[in-house]
Design a binder for these strands. Structure first.
Length: 636
DNA sequence: ATAGGGTTAG
């Protein structure tokens, strides 16, 4: 076959630069090797090979450049990229559309969008090519120039250049935050109208966009409507649920996925583990660990960190530590996982020790690491140590504290009774405090029974989070403790005026790998009769005991005065646990809201008369109950 | 032999 006929078959112009450059057919073996390296993502090797090629006197041709430019792009080597652009011009293959597209893409990935634009503008024949538009659009959107990307998209449509699915794939992922949801939905509409929505990747992309915008229900309906679901589709839905806190849905979907016979990959299991962490589903977590080994993903660093985190949050610190120790290259995430685990379960000293060790190994703590260490100090009453870290964070590590740090420090000071300092700290904040910051103060006011400051904190809170029912309940409890009935009524009126309803309390217990959920007053569980029977029995025995200070566990607290409701969900969960476990075991209950005072006392008393350990995780902390004692020292 | 995109932890 002659060179000419070859080009006719490929549909290329035989007078083009390719035709000329292809006459140097000796470049072919080099190019083939380069392609292999680029395919395996061995980019620096590819660039080395290119250097060797030049040194050996072989001049590159048009087919050489896409591979080397891609390597530069992947490594973000802008200087080398510009140099290559020079070579392209010298060889004279700049007019070739695919060389141009590679150039545009390279410049975009090196954050030189203006250079990319210049290549685009200076070559009139390529300006009508979909691929060039696509490269530039995704370049704009990746460089936070979303608006320019949209403008280019409109221009594409005006000038009649064909839009394909890759165009949309450059635009849709950038709509993955709530402010752009409306725009994303327009793109979705466009895809449907132009028939692009049947594209597999577009579906995945839209799905991800919806979950990142928090529209989980919408994402689910899209998921259900997708005729063909691939691994990425399942993963996107699973991690979408996980990121939005829909933990039980994750486990259901994971089961369904396995039933459908879909192969799992590490991404799937990371999502599932994240939900186990949220749910405290220790047993399911262990199952996932077996799955990890079964699939041979043992060495995946993401998964190792997820496992550390899951075990640490579920209270299995031994196992968390074991995996942590087995990680050879411990990242900041691995460290933060164990530190947070020890902290949240009340072993502040160990958390501090580990934190210091981490710094010694040369890892610089980041913002999240400081959140875990400061809150670890707060859980263990190490007030001054916590303050020390807070100040080191700013002065020694130059990290600007965010509201999440301030809420930890306010909690730290507040629990120690240093309410005035806590309040002054909030007033001195550089960033705007969020609800959690004032909430920590409100919580401290409850512990130290300070109604006046509580009212002030509450005023700020409802400006920031007017619909967060938890704070109304907290204030009502403070009034109730102070026997201020007028205050309790005031809160009740506020709730009615704002038409707020209390978020239903719910608790989970995990048993034999299945998660059982109870709502307040729930009678839907298949063992309802046994559960309520057990509860009656417990209440009777507990009544005879009285509290440690002669308290009656049935005193009415503000929460129940505020909203009359059925049996609290954590009581149901505890009773369920007792029905289904044998003596000596540990029952772990997870509650979505804060544990109520009544239940806390009740569980404390129950732990005195039955041979079980109880762990209750509520919205703010862990409570470990055994033999009539709870690990939390400041509550009730 | 050639370019453009979607899922991962604290």
């Amino acid at each position: 076959m002659t060179v000419q006929s070859h080009f006719r078959i490929r549909g290329l112009n035989s007078h083009s630069a390719i035709a000329r450059s292809l006459l140097t057919t000796t470049a072919i073996p080099w190019n083939t090797h380069l392609r292999e390296l680029a395919k395996q993502c061995l980019f620096s090797e590819a660039l080395n090979l290119y250097r060797r090629m030049l040194r050996s006197g072989q001049s590159p041709n048009a087919f050489t450049f896409p591979f080397v430019l891609k390597s530069c792009a992947s490594l973000s080597l802008s200087t080398a990229g510009k140099l290559l652009h020079g070579h392209v011009i010298k060889i004279g293959c700049e007019p070739e559309p695919f060389v141009q597209t590679s150039l545009i893409s390279m410049y975009c990935k090196c954050c030189l969008v203006d250079n990319a634009r210049k290549v685009f503008d200076e070559n009139p024949q390529s300006r009508n090519l979909t691929v060039c538009y696509n490269a530039l659009i995704s370049g704009y959107t990746l460089n936070s120039k979303f608006l320019d990307g949209i403008v280019l998209f409109s221009k594409m449509r005006e000038t009649g250049v064909a839009v394909n699915s890759v165009t949309m794939l450059g635009l849709i992922p950038r709509c993955a935050e709530p402010v752009y949801l409306a725009l994303g939905m327009c793109f979705h509409g466009f895809c449907v109208k132009s028939g692009l929505d049947i594209d597999f990747s577009i579906g995945n992309c839209l799905l991800t966009m919806y979950v990142k915008c928090g529209s989980v229900q919408y994402a689910r309906s899209l998921f259900d409507a997708m005729p063909e679901k691939g691994l990425i589709t399942w993963n996107a839905m699973i991690s979408g649920y996980a990121q939005n806190g829909f933990a039980t849905e994750v486990l259901d979907l994971y089961r369904e996925m396995k039933l459908c016979g879909i192969y799992l990959d590490p991404v799937t299991l990371v999502g599932v583990l994240s939900s186990c962490t949220h749910l405290g589903a220790h047993g399911v977590g262990r199952e996932v660990e077996q799955q990890v080994q079964l699939c041979g993903f043992d060495s995946n660093p993401f998964l190792k960190n997820s496992l550390i985190n899951m075990y640490a949050r579920c209270g299995n610190l031994v196992k968390a530590r074991e995996i942590f120790d087995s990680v050879l290259e411990k990242s900041i995430v691995s460290w933060t996982g164990v530190i947070g685990g020890y902290g949240v379960h009340g072993h502040g000293e160990i958390a501090v020790q580990l934190f210091e060790e981490m710094i010694k190994t040369g890892i610089r703590p980041d913002k999240t690491a400081f959140v875990s260490i400061i809150s670890a100090c707060s859980h263990s009453g190490m007030t001054d140590k916590g303050l020390e870290y807070f100040s080191a964070m700013k002065s020694k590590y130059g990290l600007q504290p965010g509201p999440e740090h301030y809420s930890c420090v306010v909690d730290l000071l507040g629990r120690a009774g240093r309410l005035k300092e806590a309040k002054d700290l909030i007033n001195s904040m550089q960033v705007n405090p969020d609800g959690a910051v004032w909430g920590a103060l409100l919580n401290a006011c409850k512990i130290h029974k300070n109604v006046e400051l509580a009212e002030l904190a509450f005023e700020r809170i409802i400006e920031l989070e007017p619909t967060n029912i938890g704070y109304y309940v907290l204030l009502s409890n403070i009034y109730s403790d102070a026997e201020n009935l007028e205050g309790v009524l005031k809160v009740r009126v506020m709730l009615r005026e704002r038409q707020l309803k209390k978020e239903p309390g719910c608790s989970y217990v995990e048993l034999k790998g299945k998660v059982h959920m109870f709502l307040a007053g729930d009678k839907t569980h298949s063992q309802t009769a046994d559960i309520y029977g057990m509860l009656d029995e417990l209440e009777n025995s507990v009544k005879q005991l009285g509290g440690p200070n002669g308290e009656d566990h049935k005193r009415r607290k503000g929460e129940e005065q505020l909203i009359g409701e059925g049996v609290h969900s954590e009581k149901l969960a505890i009773a369920f646990g007792l029905v289904n476990t044998s003596p000596g075991t540990e029952i772990v209950v997870i509650k979505n809201l804060r544990a109520c005072g009544d239940c806390h006392l009740f569980i404390k008393l129950v732990s005195k008369i039955v041979d079980r350990k109880f762990v209750v995780r509520d919205a703010t902390r862990f409570h470990h109950f055994k033999d009539g004692v709870c690990s939390c020292r400041d509550y009730w």
